[in-house]
């Protein structure tokens, strides 16, 4: 069996920000060894200041490493040709406030040397894809809400149909429906064979979409591995069924206890608030559309 190609590989990657004159240096990332396979969704977790964004900036060549090396899609990090195959969504939507959504995407399309027809198609497609309201597309980004700006930022990250998408806090500023859509989109990207590097505080996001993850703390790797391996509780059993009578429940509990199991309890599963919210908003939107 042939091992899958590496999308990202770092070796002893270190970044220490220099202090002013003789003041203390700030170690942001220390000897990071990372391997992300092509076609997987990889989560980068950690509290504030753990080195997640620094890792991403190093991979994009926006900052220079103090030591170690990084390779992205088989070439050194920061390589201009490699960046053609990368889409990057920064943690905040750093976009030009004086351009509108179309102009913004057109500008980034030009940076990928796309011709006029390609740009027009890509702009329309990705603005639809991220669900930006057509009514606001001609307005300057400075007048957008945070969620609208985030959608444009997401569209620019996908504009070049990248093989590797690096997302830094992709759901920040989005409403629950948007968050769900993003997560669905990430899964769709995976199905399309794309690699996704996801850096976030939202543990639920990681849990829902990631295949593997690494947890950083103060620039060092504290834990890494496949999500299923890390989260699976092998000593706990859970049975889920509908329309179970109280008598049957009592008998099941008794039977379980008799067989020697401990901490036996019956839990009534609750629907996720996210699903409830989405159902509600979808229903309202359908009503509005029907009214129009």
């Amino acid at each position: 069996m042939v091992a899958p190609a590496q999308a990202i590989q770092t070796r002893q990657l270190t970044k220490i920000y220099p202090g002013f004159w003789k003041s203390q240096k700030v170690p942001a990332l220390l000897q990071l060894n990372l391997q992300v396979q092509q076609g997987e969704i990889f989560g980068l977790l950690g509290p504030n200041g753990s080195g997640k964004t620094t890792t991403i900036k190093l991979l994009l060549g926006l900052i220079n490493p103090t030591a170690g090396e990084a390779q992205v899609m088989g070439r050194p990090a920061g390589d201009q040709e490699t960046r053609r195959r990368i889409g990057y969504l920064p943690e905040e939507s750093y976009l030009y406030r004086f351009l509108n959504a179309r102009q913004t995407l057109d500008f980034y399309g030009r940076l990928f040397n796309m011709n006029r027809v390609q740009r027009r198609r890509a702009v329309d497609y990705y603005l639809d894809f991220v669900g930006l309201d057509p009514a606001v597309r001609g307005r300057r980004i400075g007048t957008y809400s945070k969620g609208q700006t985030r959608r444009v930022a997401l569209a620019q990250a996908l504009l070049n149909n990248p093989d590797l998408i690096i997302m830094d806090e992709p759901t920040s500023g989005l409403d629950p429906v948007g968050i769900l859509e993003i997560k669905n989109m990430i899964l769709r990207l995976k199905q399309a064979g794309k690699t996704v590097l996801l850096s976030t505080h939202q543990l639920a996001d990681v849990e829902d979409v990631c295949d593997r993850l690494v947890i950083l703390y103060r620039g060092r790797v504290e834990m890494s591995g496949a999500l299923s391996d890390l989260l699976e509780r092998r000593d706990v059993f859970q049975l889920e069924a509908r329309q179970v009578s109280p008598e049957l429940q009592e008998r099941l509990v008794a039977l379980t206890r008799e067989s020697g199991a401990t901490d036996v309890q019956i839990i009534r599963p609750r629907a996720r608030l996210e699903d409830l919210f989405k159902r509600l908003v979808d229903a309202k939107r359908q009503t509005e559309r029907a009214g129009k």
Binding site: L62, Q80, Y94, R97, F112, A153
Partner: peptide
């Protein structure tokens, strides 16, 4: 200052 250089710099531009 506005950090737009981060987004632009991530594109294939020298």
């Amino acid at each position: 200052e506005r950090r737009t250089l981060i987004t632009t710099g991530s594109k294939p531009i020298s």
